[in-house]
Amino acid sequence: MAFLTLEKLTKKFGTHLAVDGLSLEVEKGEFIALLGPSGCGKTTTLQMIAGFVDPTAGAIRLEGRDLLAIKPAKRGLGIVFQSYALFPHMTVAENVAFGLEMQGVVAAERTKRVAETLDLVGLGAFAVRFPRQMSGGQQQRVALARALVIRPSILLLDEPLSNLDAKLREEMQIELRQIQRTVSTTTILVTHDQAEAMALSDRIVVMNQGRAEQIGPPHEAYERPATPFVANFLGKTNLVNGTTVRPEKISFGTSGLAGKVRTRIFQGNHWLYQVDTDGGLVTVIRQNTGEAMPTEGAAVHLVWQSSPPPSSGEVPAGRRGS
């Protein structure tokens, strides 16, 4: 039996279906990403697991127990909010200690665990600062430490990195993954950034208008998208003569689909091409290996492997039998 089970979870706001029969099974220690465009119901799903939003229908089970029967304060989940929601009137150490205090952990043990957790997120030296006196990235780590210190059964992260700049976000992604491996807490991450979802998670749930379009490992979802929506959301795609091809799978050859380079953009580690062909405009991404590349206006031929067989493994859980 799965560790955490969502069964046909549904939430209606008035007549608007925010989450529409979402089913998902999460194994212990797994890192799941809920990925989808703005307004697709990711936060609502997370809030239902946390207990701040009551589902209209469906069930949530944690190790077989009915989670919906348990009050939010008793669920013992660790949550990192998008705004961090740190307690501004408490120091970092007090923020982290708060959950332990609520559990009635004795002072000596509390101090020890707070120090351990702050070390884990690399903030050992910041215990006596107030949140206002810290950078966005540091505040994010405090929020993570505060959620982890209570040894939650599940860690829920709502767009935890979206307030950080691009470079810091990448660093925190790596660190987040390492920390999650260290503590091996079952984690559900909400994000609208497909790169982040793919970088961090064991499995991705691609959501669209409250439904799961596909559930599967990032690589599989990328290579064998179940629906056009998934294909487009996870990365750029080309539709050439009825087949979909990812831009990085196309290379320049001596024979194949003939075309003419319309634009060429240098992006550091790769080149981005737009090529006019008989089958329409085709996007091509080539690694920057240092070799000479076709220039704008050049006549080229495009070649690619025929696409792999359609996805046979994972069927989106929410659509079983429909």
């Binding site: 946390a50 701040f52 669920r75 660790g78 949550i79 909010f81 307690f87």
Partner: peptide
């Protein structure tokens, strides 16, 4: 912060 009370509740506060 609109989520601050939820944050405290999630940590077990009544």
């Amino acid at each position: 912060d609109p989520q601050i009370e939820n944050a405290a509740v999630a940590l077990g506060a009544g």
